[in-house]
């Protein structure tokens, strides 16, 4: 888990890594953005430049193109947040030079990575200096595997396998006739 530095070199490196869709992403994973607001954030949160009409290209060539602008405005009503996100989008050049977004079928044919700019609320635990904490559970977008074979396959747990139980029961034929104490 690495944090992107808001310096020229940090931003430049992030842009380079982010725009390279031909290999695995190995740039910084977390971007910190302090925002002067106390309004809550809805999930999913479209990460786009709200002031830029080019944001239409956020979506692939189906109906989302027409709906995403309205949807984005509905999800983020706070102007300060929208401005901050727009700046993040613009500074980090997440528009990919306004290239047409390839859908899954097109991208897989040429071995490119597809990107989804809808950010979903994830699970986190904010710990404060006064020994309080605020735990947030994600929306179900990500999460642990179910306990069972899938987790075992991924090397995340050991399969609960034991020899079958052999139940031996004995019947005391005289017990029924004995008077209870």
């Amino acid at each position: 888990m690495s944090v992107m530095k808001w310096s020229d070199s940090g931003v430049e490196e992030y842009i380079e890594k982010c725009n390279n869709v031909n290999t695995n992403f190995d740039g910084a994973s977390i971007i910190c953005v302090p925002i002067l607001t106390e309004e809550c954030f809805k999930s999913p949160m479209p990460l786009c430049n709200y002031q830029d009409k080019g944001t239409k290209l956020l979506a692939t060539s189906d109906l989302h193109i027409h709906d995403i602008q309205n949807y984005a405005s509905k999800q983020i009503s706070c102007n300060i947040t929208r401005e901050a996100l727009a700046q993040v989008h613009k500074t980090l050049q997440m528009h990919n030079d306004y290239q047409i977004v390839k859908d899954a079928c097109e991208a897989v044919g040429v071995g490119e990575t597809t990107q989804c700019r809808l950010l979903y609320k994830g699970t986190s635990n904010f710990k404060f200096k006064d020994a309080t904490n605020k735990q947030t559970f994600g929306c179900g977008h990500h999460g642990h595997d179910y306990v069972g074979v899938a987790a075992v396959r991924n090397g995340k747990s050991l399969m609960a396998a034991t020899a079958p139980h052999i139940n031996i029961s004995t019947v005391d034929s005289g017990a029924a006739s004995k008077p209870k104490a």
Partner: peptide
Amino acid sequence: RRRVRVGEYYTGN
């Protein structure tokens, strides 16, 4: 089988 990048956000005070 394809690569995909998806996103999450976390927020708090």
